[in-house]
Amino acid sequence: MSPRPIRPALAAAALAATLAACGQPPPAPPAPTVLVRTQPPTQGALPDVVTVYGAAAPASGAVQTLSLQQPARVDTILVAPGALVKAGQRLIAYSLNPQAVSAYRQAAAALKLAQDQQTHAAQLFAQQLATRDQVAQAEAGLRAAQANLAALGQQGAAAPSGGLSAPFDGVVVSIPVAAGDQTMAGAALVTVARSTGLVVTAGFDPGQAARLRVGQPATLQSLSGRPAVAGRVLRIAGALNPRTRLVDADIGAAGGGLILGDAFRAAVTVGQVAGWLAPHVAVLNDGQRDYVFQVAGGRARRVDVSLVRSAGDVDVIRGPLDPRLPLVADGAYQLDNGAQVRTAAAK
């Protein structure tokens, strides 16, 4: 029967005992190594993004406020704020103030009288019973009566009742009146914004606003869970908002589809940030500084860096990296400065 193999641990113990008996120390155990993945240091750039919050609101020039040029009574309100309306859709029904109706009727009667007077003066002149001045005065009175009636008609006094209709496809922004209200001439009755005229108005810190430019791309993410949409900066205010002390900017959605009042997170690309590109997991922080590891002679070398920009799983860093030494891309959290490593190329 063949002898049983000696276990490695027993053999090592026996060798150590033998060396100890001879007065020689046992050999030191091999230094532990850490398996990491590396990649060559590369330089590049990531978008420099400023993220702010805002809400969908009508753009300047995309809003129209409807009113009457005569005192009136609001009979019926046919829509509510936030309603989507079509061009020509009736929004409010009204009745003119009786005094406005009376003024129009008086103007119509005055025109009839002026027409009769002008006709009579022309007949008398033909019979040489009236002077040319009398005919001219009658014609001037007729023109004045015609102008007065036309002006009242343009102001909506021709019909004692009527309605206000949507001037275009859009959304009702506000209705500052209620059924039964007596309104003055020119008072706002309903405000409508174009469906394609909504923008996200967001406030930027003045330091950030200095880098804004009209036309810069943006991503609009609805906080209500709707899909993100692409957009662009359309307008940048030239003064601080007195309420927020921020600089307002309008960001339009490329395909429209914004909902009035919806809250958004807007990520505006204001430029590019250049530096060393590193995997996000490769950049560590010890509570005081950011740092990465490079590999030199089979050992980890710590390099202090500054984290400039993060975008998903890639960071832009700046620091004294050696472009000839591999950068630890994965497994850096296991390392200390000077640790012995085994390397494998990063995926």
Rank of each mutant, 00 (worst) to 15 (best):
Met1Leu: 13
Pro5Leu: 13
Arg7Gly: 10
Pro8Glu: 07
Ala13Gly: 07
Ala13Leu: 14
Leu19Ile: 06
Ala28Phe: 08
Ala31Pro: 12
Val34Phe: 11
Leu35Ser: 11
Thr38Glu: 00
Thr38Ile: 06
Pro41Gly: 07
Pro41Asn: 13
Thr42Trp: 05
Gln43Lys: 11
Ala45Cys: 11
Pro47Lys: 08
Pro47Val: 08
Val52Lys: 02
Ser60Met: 08
Gln64Ile: 15
Thr65Cys: 04
Leu66Ile: 12
Gln69Gly: 09
Gln69Trp: 02
Arg73Pro: 05
Asp75Pro: 00
Thr76Phe: 07
Ile77Pro: 01
Ile77Leu: 15
Ala80Gln: 13
Pro81Ser: 06
Pro81Thr: 03
Gly82Gln: 06
Lys86Val: 01
Ala87Phe: 00
Gly88Met: 02
Leu91Arg: 00
Ala93Pro: 02
Ser95Tyr: 03
Leu96Thr: 05
Leu96Glu: 01
Gln99Asn: 14
Ala100Asn: 02
Tyr104Ile: 01
Ala108Met: 03
Asp116Ile: 04
Gln117Leu: 09
Gln118Lys: 03
Ala122Arg: 08
Leu124Met: 10
Leu129Phe: 09
Thr131Ser: 15
Thr131Tyr: 04
Gln134Gly: 09
Ala144Ile: 12
Asn148Asp: 14
Gly153Tyr: 09
Ala158Ser: 15
Ala159Trp: 11
Gly162Ser: 11
Ser165Arg: 01
Pro167Ile: 01
Pro176Phe: 10
Asp181Thr: 06
Val192Trp: 00
Arg194Cys: 01
Arg194Leu: 04
Thr201Asn: 12
Ala202Ile: 01
Phe204Asp: 01
Phe204Val: 03
Gly207Asn: 10
Gly207Leu: 12
Gly207Glu: 15
Gln208Lys: 07
Val214Glu: 13
Gln216Phe: 12
Ala218Cys: 10
Gln221Asn: 10
Gly225Ser: 08
Val229Trp: 02
Val233Glu: 01
Ile236Leu: 15
Leu240His: 05
Pro242Val: 09
Arg243Ile: 13
Asp248Ile: 04
Ile251Gln: 02
Gly255Lys: 09
Ile259His: 15
Gly261Phe: 07
Arg265Leu: 04
Ala266His: 00
Thr269Pro: 07
Ala274Trp: 02
Leu277Glu: 06
Val281Cys: 08
Val281His: 02
Ala282Thr: 05
Asp286Pro: 02
Gly287Trp: 11
Val295Gly: 02
Ala296Ser: 13
Ala296Thr: 14
Val303Trp: 02
Val303Ile: 15
Asp304His: 07
Ser306Met: 11
Ser310His: 15
Gly312Phe: 05
Val314Ile: 14
Val314Leu: 14
Asp315Asn: 12
Val316Met: 03
Leu321Tyr: 13
Asp322Asn: 14
Asp322Tyr: 14
Gly331Met: 04
Ala332Glu: 01
Leu335Ile: 14
Asp336Lys: 09
Gln340Thr: 07
Val341Ala: 03
Ala346Gly: 13
Lys347Phe: 06
